[in-house]
């Protein structure tokens, strides 16, 4: 069976700097894979290249056997890859519900004419968009539900902004979800909660998840497999235990001396 995601020889240069340098990676359906690596290792560049924000210089990204290189970000989202951002990017002045409804945009069809005439098909679709957006928000229990639906997104606390971003990504109905440091800035209790919720995303919603994470407890808690990057290259791959004790990984994080000692 072909893996859900297949990355081969992916290279992205910024000037002379290779942010990604011939990266190979395969993710099977239903897997949760963590991407770790020191700052500047190319983790976020990997996400940006996969989702079409950057075009790669070389290599290929295949999703369900089809190459997505050269597609626009909105087309890739429609195919079923959705993401969150390292620094939270919501639509701050739209309400919580509207934010999630924008996620549903790519699953709708209503255009100019049907919107102006409010045809039955458009009304049904709008109803469906609203229901699904509510459903995605309810994934986080009461934190984004009820009266919060009508609050503008900028009034949310930091942790809730992160949760809303995940809900919005869920609303695009992805098969593959890319989470970029989902627990950054959360307190230990919230982090623990989210670790559990990442598991539930797979269990309840059948998602395949690729997650960039710095918090090793989270990495340990969620990953089937861990991939370590440094200078745009894959330096280790395997279970959490294998990667965490890999010499090159320790060296990349702590420097040569520590690895030797």
């Amino acid at each position: 069976m072909t893996p859900l995601l297949e990355i081969a020889g992916l290279t992205k240069r910024f000037g002379g700097l290779a942010a990604l340098d011939g990266l190979d990676l395969a993710v099977a359906e239903g897997e949760i894979v963590s991407v770790i690596g020191p700052n500047g290792a190319g983790k976020t560049t990997l996400f940006n290249t996969m989702t079409g924000l950057y075009g790669p210089d070389q290599g290929d990204v295949r999703f369900e056997g089809q190459s997505v290189v050269g597609l626009k970000p909105n087309q890739i989202t429609r195919l079923g890859i959705s993401r969150t951002f390292q620094t939270v990017h919501l639509f701050p002045n739209m309400t919580v519900l509207e934010n999630a409804m924008v996620g549903q945009h790519c699953r709708g069809r209503a255009g100019l004419v049907s919107s102006v005439l409010r045809l039955p098909a458009q009304r049904n679709e709008e109803e469906r968009i609203r229901d699904r957006a509510r459903d995605c928000l309810s994934f986080f229990g009461g934190r984004l539900s009820g009266y919060r639906h009508d609050q503008p997104a900028f009034t949310l606390s930091y942790a809730n902004r992160r949760r809303l971003e995940i809900s919005r990504a869920l609303a695009t109905e992805p098969k593959l979800l890319l989470l970029d440091e989902p627990t950054a800035g959360m307190n230990p209790k919230e982090t623990l909660e989210l670790t559990d919720q990442i598991w539930r995303l797979r269990k309840d919603r059948g998602l395949t998840i690729l997650v960039i994470e710095h918090d090793m407890r989270v990495v340990k808690g969620v990953s089937d497999r861990v991939v370590a990057l440094d200078y745009g290259k894959k330096i280790a791959e395997g279970t959490y235990e294998e990667v965490a004790h890999n010499e090159r990984v320790i060296e990349a994080y702590l420097g040569r001396k520590a690895a030797a000692g």
Binding site: N74, H89, F91, M94, V102, H105
Partner: peptide
């Protein structure tokens, strides 16, 4: 609206 708020993110969300 989403486009006005953040063009790049709107694009990434499928607009």
């Amino acid at each position: 609206n989403a486009m006005r708020e953040d063009e790049q993110v709107a694009e990434a969300m499928g607009v």
